[in-house]
Nucleic acid binder design. Structure first.
Lengths: 215, 215
DNA sequence: CCGCAGGCGTACCGTACGGTACGGTTCCAG
DNA sequence: CTGGAACCGTACCGTACGGTACGCCTGCGG
């Protein structure tokens, strides 16, 4: 059984990327019903090629998730002159990005796929999703938070705790409800409220961690 | 194809409950690999009986989730004399219950199963899990919050928003990381920190919604 | 004692799908 | 022009699993 998982290798030929796009499309529209035959037909390639390129079904799945997750790129925040207003805008931007990503159809599909995968003692997809989702935001947000603390604009002991509180304030129960297919949370319904939610979460975050807040 | 989904009928004979217990055990230990043959063997019953009782595989799955989810019962909080201390203890208790439930192995399994199910345009399991998980807590917490507001101990416009903020402060990124199989979050690791997390979340909740907090 | 309903165990069927093999085509190097 | 590498399309294989059929046993009402 050829494994050849190219986890840390995101270089795919255009043809391979076309295959991955087809796989992702099938994943999004058809739910979990991703079959090798379907991918081959959709991408107009042979199954043999799929197996040559990706090893097995898991390899194809991993490559798809890896490749797509890596495409999520958050805007870099200017950290040079960090007054109160700029900090607040940065935080708001992170909240907006986070909400936009997790409510997107692709993100929901990828998270569902990874959760399903994790239910079978396979945690590779979960790690990839975590790494490119929450943890990516954390890596980018933490320096901002610490810069804010250095500038006496924020107050906290652990930037890790501050980040996780931020995550909770922003995401709340939206992600789990979307993953569970809650019909009351249509995507348009959520998107319409993103701005209000962003503002509310940012207000609450500053209420808890702003310099003027109680220690 | 006999359907006979007994969604609002949680009366199962002891023999049927033994079957459901076997199904749940298999689900927990074997992940997604729940096969009718395995359940029949584990429960020492025939597949034909399974199909007679539960219709099909989905029916068995639904009955299992429904039956188990309904077993989660949260303690009722005394609402009669609601001073500040009692309110705080109640809130803490809800936070503790919520964290304890969602970090439990059974809850993780059920949520994973429901998410997997939702990836196939089947939202019945998701609804059941939602209904008996977050929404059950919401139903019980909201009256407490509103009583707290009536007693001038809390301040908020929408009890819905207050509840969802509470959920976010308590759950943060723990649930999604557990569902994705994050190895850094072993169950024991989380359980050891539950008390500290409960206190922190409650503190933050009161900082945001306590009567003395900024409007 | 008889008959039958309920249920166990097992054999069986059909199908879907992962994975492989193979012939045919295109394209490029020499 | 020729050999070969890459790849497409498709046929094929093996297996796992959902669902059904059937034979047998047990308990119980009459």
């Amino acid at each position: 059984m050829p494994v050849t998982i190219k986890v840390n290798e995101e270089t795919f030929t255009p043809r391979q990327q076309a295959v991955l796009t087809a796989a992702l499309d099938l994943l999004v529209e058809n739910g979990d019903g991703l079959t090798m035959t379907a991918v081959a037909r959709r991408a107009s390639c042979s199954k043999e090629t799929l197996y040559k390129w990706f090893g097995d079904r898991d390899g194809l799945l991993t490559a798809t998730v890896q490749w797509q997750a890596a495409k999520v790129r958050m805007p870099v925040v200017d950290r040079s002159h960090l007054n109160a207003k700029a900090l607040r805008l940065s935080i708001e931007q992170f909240a907006r990005d986070l909400l936009t990503v997790i409510t997107g159809e692709v993100s929901i599909t990828l998270n569902r796929t990874a959760v399903t995968h994790a239910a079978q003692e396979k945690d590779s997809l979960g790690i990839i999703v975590l790494e490119n989702g929450p943890l990516a935001i954390r890596r980018r947000l933490k320096p901002i938070l610490e810069a804010g603390r250095d500038a006496r604009l924020l107050r906290f002991d652990s930037s890790e705790d501050a980040y996780r509180t931020f995550f909770g304030l922003v995401v709340r129960d939206v992600q789990i409800r979307l993953l569970l297919g809650d019909k009351a949370l249509t995507q348009s319904n959520v998107e319409a409220n993103i701005e209000a939610d962003v503002k509310a979460a940012t207000d609450q975050f500053f209420a808890l961690y702003g310099a003027k807040a109680n220690p």
